[in-house]
């Protein structure tokens, strides 16, 4: 039986790198994600590879935008979490909240939004903002944006839809809530025209965080991705972050901290040992392993690392629930 101490494991597809095999890209991605699902991983993160977000264009590009790709992958999987990157510059908050709310219903509650409060170079120039944003403006704007998105995700109560055909009452008007947000950067009345998520709200994953972003993350995130630092700093960093979460009035376990791991180059035994050490030292809740989107890239993880972790009782044998929140051991949506 699994105990509560299971680690959380995600894989991220490195941006801009498609499978070089002759298979159509979607076929190859399907095999990748199905293999990750068969292995019981919590989630796959899909980067969004606009040149604007920093890839150098030297690699063969994946021909897909991440949210559309996610919808398609939801059709060929049924348990694994699917998280797409989407930029706060490329989308209006209402549109982004709505896209992810819809994806969450399409996938029966397996969706997350990977947001960043860091500005991608060049991106604003493709979205009619050639001057970009100052770093500080961008952070305040992203903070406000995330609050709007999470607020819109809560616009409909879970029991708002009545479907009362004979009485002529489709939904309970008392259970639909306007957002009425008026802020520094945005004004959004709401509500969304998409029903409540099957998992309460989509999961919010924050990445590329600087120290000054940690309080935003502590207040809003469900998962944060951190780069692996020096070993002795990781524990202090984790404890510090959990304190910040508690200061926001949230349960420290309400945010899962995953450490980014580069593609495996060391021996797999060493990798499993390193993951075990960090996890048991309580310096993270799990790992996000970055790899190119070819199914063979998963081989070492699936065939060697996961069995080693499972033998040591560190990773669950199979999915416990059907939603991404249940995989991650999360209750309802973050923030508030």
């Amino acid at each position: 039986m699994d105990n509560g101490a299971t680690m959380h494991l995600a894989v991220s597809l490195l941006p801009g790198i498609a499978d070089a095999s002759p298979d159509p890209e979607f076929t190859s991605l399907t095999r990748f994600v199905q293999k990750a699902e068969a292995a019981g991983l919590d989630m796959v993160l899909l980067a969004d590879s606009a040149p604007a977000s920093g890839s150098d264009g030297a690699n063969k590009q994946m021909p897909f935008e991440a949210t559309t790709l996610l919808a398609a992958l939801a059709m060929v999987t049924n348990r694994i979490g699917l998280v797409a990157a989407a930029s706060t510059v490329a989308h209006q908050p209402y549109n982004l909240a709505r896209r992810f709310a819809s994806l969450d219903i399409i996938s029966h509650g397996r969706v997350g939004w990977n947001a960043t409060v860091a500005q991608a170079p060049r991106e604003a120039a493709n979205f009619s903002r050639p001057e970009g944003f100052s770093g500080d403006d961008f952070r305040r704007r992203a903070d406000e944006y995330i609050g709007i998105v999470q607020g819109l995700w809560r616009g409909w109560d879970a029991d708002a839809l009545l479907f009362d055909q004979s009485g002529g009452c489709f939904h309970d008007p008392e259970k639909m809530h306007l957002l009425d947000h008026k802020g520094e950067f945005f004004s959004v009345r709401g509500p969304l025209n998409v029903a409540r998520s099957p998992q309460d709200t989509p999961v919010l994953v924050l990445s590329d965080l600087s120290v000054s972003d940690l309080d935003i993350a502590a207040r809003t995130a469900d998962v944060i991705l951190l780069d692996g630092g020096p070993r002795d700093g990781a524990k202090a960093r984790y404890d510090d972050f959990r304190r910040r979460v508690a200061l926001c009035g949230r349960d420290p376990d309400a945010v899962k901290v995953l450490i980014n791991v580069s593609p495996f180059t060391d021996g797999t035994a060493t990798i499993a040992d390193g993951m075990e050490r960090e996890f048991l030292a309580k310096s993270c809740d799990g790992f996000n392993i970055q790899m190119p989107a070819r199914p063979s890239a998963l081989d070492d993880l699936v065939d060697l690392v996961l069995p080693a972790l499972r033998r040591r009782g560190l990773f669950r044998e199979s999915y416990r629930g059907v939603t991404l929140r249940s995989h991650l051991g999360l209750a309802g949506g973050g923030g508030q």
Binding site: F26, T67, T68, L69, L70, A71, A72, A74, M75, V76, R98, R99, A101, S102, L103, I105, I106, W156, L161, G168, C169, F170, H171, D172, P173, M176, N193, V194, A195
Partner: peptide, 21 residues
């Protein structure tokens, strides 16, 4: 609005991306 079914539904780009498959 509460007497019609038109206040909630799928966002169409995500819907059609799923239907594409």
């Amino acid at each position: 609005a509460s007497q019609t079914s038109r206040s909630i539904g799928f966002e169409p780009i995500s819907l059609l991306s799923a239907l594409a498959v």
